[in-house]
Design a protein around this nucleic acid. Structure first.
Lengths: 347, 347
DNA sequence: GTGAAAGCGCTAACAG
DNA sequence: CTGTTAGCGCTTTCAC
């Protein structure tokens, strides 16, 4: 066998470097870790050897020896949805600052398998876990808590658990938005819900109802359409609402994506937004600002939620005892041009 | 110090299990790895101990000993964009089947730091790398190739490198789409480009021009608006095009997001799609099917690109020598309702 | 079948 | 300042 070092590409170890630079094992380690107790000349010699040999540290071994990986795991239900993307942006940014790496898991993956796959999979490689919008976390939350594995939920809402979590004030956001519509003179306000298995969707509906109640307006079941957070539901919801004998003059969709669907449906019927129908969304995804008309919506501090959750996780990592609680970040009404004062419909 | 085993949560090792079940060190390892050379009774005893102690394998140590991590890295420019989400879905699915985990890196992170951070960061923890839509890969592609580090580019296009890659037939897609518009009778066709620093954007523009040429139609510079793949560019592009003394009767946007922007702009001017202006996009993102009207577009097999790239990477992992080439997956024209035969404008 | 022992590549005392 | 030496937790020959 002539050259069997083809396989060995990059297989330069700390030992090779030591040999090449004529120092010992541990000294190379010191150089690598910027230990100040190394004579400049020695350091230079080692650095040189590192360059020449193309040595690169083996994180795997380092992690094992040190007992920490500097990797945190993020569990998301799915990718490609702008909503989660925003949260991820926050997580990513925070992780970057701290020099941590990110391991991504999708819920659907292996969802069928053992409930504690999260814990077992993660053990040893991930120092902590961020759970984004968990759907049925009952499966693994127990394991996580029992093992005292550091983790925090993001946008959980309404899940009965003691796990630390960060969410947004969905109830208040919906309340304020509804109140704004009422202030504009609207009396019949349609509502398109999100997936009702999600706490945030429930909270938004409750906020809407509470605002109606607060202003002594009736809560009409026919004005509440059950959606699922997808655009299609916005289209169908708006159509259903507009087909009512006594249609609403404003529609509040539980998220921007459905609001966009509703806007399309409204226009498709030859009605105008906001002249004929006011529309308001929830989330304030980037796109909603560039629609025509720009969408009035309730901003959810998505990126910030990601940041805060990550910081909380770091806190837990540093002080295992510290009981970090659940926090809710404020939502904010963003008034743009898809809403207008109530006036009688021409028809 | 009363109980100091709080820190030790989950710190059960293979050694503890061995002791508890009265077997040796290595036997436990055999059980864990489903080695058939273990007497059922022994296996049962070990399994029991594992259960009782709540032992969970340390992937870190396993990886070090085995010399493989079962983790592959994915480098993306950004999250939260539906386009990348689709690709990720494909990657994720394929990885799942193979039992691999996914480490996510964003380009912006540490982008400023050393060019070979990719290689160094990745060494030892990631077995291979998937580079999605790399913008200026010149920085690290060299290192990757030099080290023969397994990697494949996704939707690279026009980057002069020998790295294996998978893309889509952008040129052909644009050609076919333009030809379709011409077949509909359109003669002045506006074009909104993508970020021209991306190969795919260039290819699409060239495909458009080629189709025009093939049908002996003039290529008018004023009909080509330089966009950037974002919605806003679609709005501005459409406005610029429609403000022309001799506006186009159809607009071809280099991606669906800009096509959506263009649709909004057209409608905002009181014109109708497709009656007054035909609009065609590129990508076929999920949303484009639920627009009103549904968008005619060129489908890019995004998810499949992710799948194929991942498979290519696995091939490389198994046969390091094997020279996998660059492949292009076919695009396909999806005709929906945003395009219609040409007719003279009323105005 | 099962035990013993030699690493995987690195860190972290502990001497000197 | 630098060399030496135990491990980190697991895999994997090699014997018995």
């Amino acid at each position: 066998m002539p050259n069997d070092d083809v396989q060995t590409t990059g297989k330069v170890t700390i030992f090779d470097v030591a040999e090449a630079s004529g120092v010992s094992y541990g000294t190379v380690s010191r150089v690598i870790n910027n230990d100040p107790h190394v004579r400049p000349a020695t350091r230079a010699r080692v650095m040189d050897a590192i360059q020449r040999l193309g040595y690169v540290i083996n994180r795997q071994a380092q992690s094992l020896a040190r007992g920490q990986t500097h990797v945190i795991g993020v569990l998301v239900p799915e990718l490609g949805n702008g909503y989660i993307g925003e949260i991820m942006r926050g997580i990513d940014g925070e992780l970057d600052q701290a020099g941590y790496d990110l391991m991504l898991f999708t819920t659907h993956r292996r969802a069928a398998k053992e409930a504690n796959y999260v814990a077992s999979l993660v053990q040893g490689v991930v120092e902590g876990l961020l759970l984004v919008l968990p759907r049925n976390p009952a499966d693994y939350l127990g394991v996580l808590s029992a093992r005292k594995f550091p983790h925090v939920l993001i946008d959980h809402q309404g899940i009965d658990t003691t796990s630390p979590a960060v969410g947004a004030t969905n109830w208040q956001g919906a309340f304020v938005a509804t109140e704004y519509l009422i202030g504009l003179g609207h009396r019949r306000i349609g509502f398109i819900t999100g997936s009702m298995d999600l706490g945030c969707a429930q909270d938004r509906l409750e906020g809407y109802k509470a605002a109606l109640r607060a202003h002594h307006l009736p809560i009409c079941p026919e004005l509440i359409y059950e959606g699922d957070f997808f655009q299609h539901a916005g289209v169908q919801g708006a159509n259903a609402l507009l087909d009512l004998p006594e249609p609403p003059s404003a529609i509040f969709a539980s998220n921007d994506v459905m609001a966009m669907g509703a806007m399309d449906a409204v226009r498709h019927r030859g009605l105008r937004v906001p002249d004929d129908i006011s529309i308001i969304g929830f989330d304030n995804i980037p796109q909603s600002a560039v629609l025509l008309p720009p969408l009035t919506t309730v901003q959810q501090p998505l990126e910030q939620m990601g940041r805060v959750a990550t910081q909380m996780l770091f806190d837990m990592l540093q002080e295992p005892g510290k009981r970090t609680s659940r926090i809710e970040l404020p939502t904010e009404l963003i008034v743009r041009q898809s809403t207008a004062p109530y006036r009688n419909r021409i028809g």
